[in-house]
Amino acid sequence: MHLSKRGSHVGFILSFVIFVLFILFLYTTIQPAIKIQKEKTLFIDYLKDVLVENFTVNLTTMTIKINETVNPNKDCISLKDAKGSLINETSLLIKDENNSKLSYEFQGKDLEILTGLNFSGFLKIFSSIGIQNESSPPIVGCEPLFNVTPSIIRVDEYITQKKIMDLKNAYESDYETVKEFFNIPPGTEFGFSFILANGTRIETENGDLSTSVYVQEYSIKYLDLEGNIKFGFLNIKVW
């Protein structure tokens, strides 16, 4: 009976030692992976901040209501000396009262806008380096307008689809320079994709990834190529 008690104590101690060793084994096995995951998560958060900063530009919005009579038989207007006095950027997006995009071109300092016949006098002009600059056919024979001033001017910060596309192109043409610009440490790689509101993906080419990839998704408000505010998703990958 006495030997049985001693045996039970020894068995309990051995079981406890084995349990402690097992816990230590699990800790030493899992802890490095947890540490790596935490580091990658923090780094993805850093990347999100610098990418959003890169995608963000100032957008100037001007609302113009032209009160003087415009010849209804003219399909375009010419804002005289607009460049420099009214508008500083050459990348514009111009809309009418129906939110339809209007073609334009600069002729010297004059801004020629193809308004169509029976122009209502309302214009909304967006100007920013983050706007896609589109070519327009020559616009001639426009109604000249002098001393046009906006009724409202607003400057906001926006993430723009164009800036997202620009970074994708830079990433794929000179990845190492992009890594250096964003201070990506040696041995760490990254990629990103942006899912537009219509489901289109703007995505970097990363090839076959044979290692562990850490991914985080963020909901982002952005300005599309048509000047409309939309919501999309930014996915960042780190490996």
Rank of each mutant, 00 (worst) to 15 (best):
L3S: 11
S4E: 15
R6N: 04
G7K: 06
G7M: 10
S8A: 14
V10R: 12
G11M: 08
G11P: 02
G11D: 02
F12H: 06
I13L: 13
I13P: 03
S15N: 03
V17E: 03
I18D: 02
F19P: 09
V20F: 14
L21P: 00
L24T: 03
L24D: 01
L26T: 08
Y27R: 09
Y27D: 09
I30Y: 05
P32W: 00
P32F: 01
K35D: 08
K35M: 11
Q37N: 14
Q37T: 14
T41P: 00
T41W: 02
F43E: 15
Y46S: 03
V50T: 11
V52T: 15
T56V: 03
V57M: 04
N58T: 05
L59Y: 05
M62V: 00
M62L: 10
I66P: 01
N67A: 08
T69W: 14
N71K: 08
N73G: 10
K74S: 15
C76R: 02
C76Y: 01
K80C: 01
A82Y: 05
A82K: 07
E89G: 08
T90Y: 04
L93Y: 05
N99Y: 06
S103I: 01
E105G: 13
F106D: 08
F106E: 08
G108L: 05
K109Y: 07
L111Q: 11
L111A: 13
E112I: 04
E112M: 15
I113P: 13
S120M: 11
F122Q: 10
F126R: 04
F126H: 13
G130V: 13
S135L: 12
P137E: 12
P138I: 04
I139R: 07
I139Q: 13
V140E: 07
V140Q: 08
G141T: 08
G141Q: 08
P144S: 05
N147F: 15
P150V: 10
I152M: 00
V155W: 02
E157P: 01
I159R: 07
Q161T: 06
K162N: 12
I164P: 01
M165W: 00
D166R: 00
Y171T: 13
T177V: 11
V178A: 02
K179E: 07
E180G: 01
I184M: 11
P186W: 01
T188F: 08
F190W: 08
F190S: 07
F190N: 07
F192L: 09
F194R: 03
L196S: 12
A197C: 06
G199D: 07
T200D: 10
E203N: 08
T204F: 06
T204N: 13
E205Y: 12
N206M: 11
D208E: 09
D208Q: 02
L209I: 15
L209K: 09
S210W: 04
V213D: 02
V213F: 01
V213S: 02
V215M: 12
E217W: 00
I220G: 05
K221H: 13
L223W: 05
E226I: 00
N228R: 13
I229T: 15
I229H: 09
F231C: 05
F233L: 07
L234T: 11
N235P: 01
N235G: 06
I236Q: 09
V238L: 07
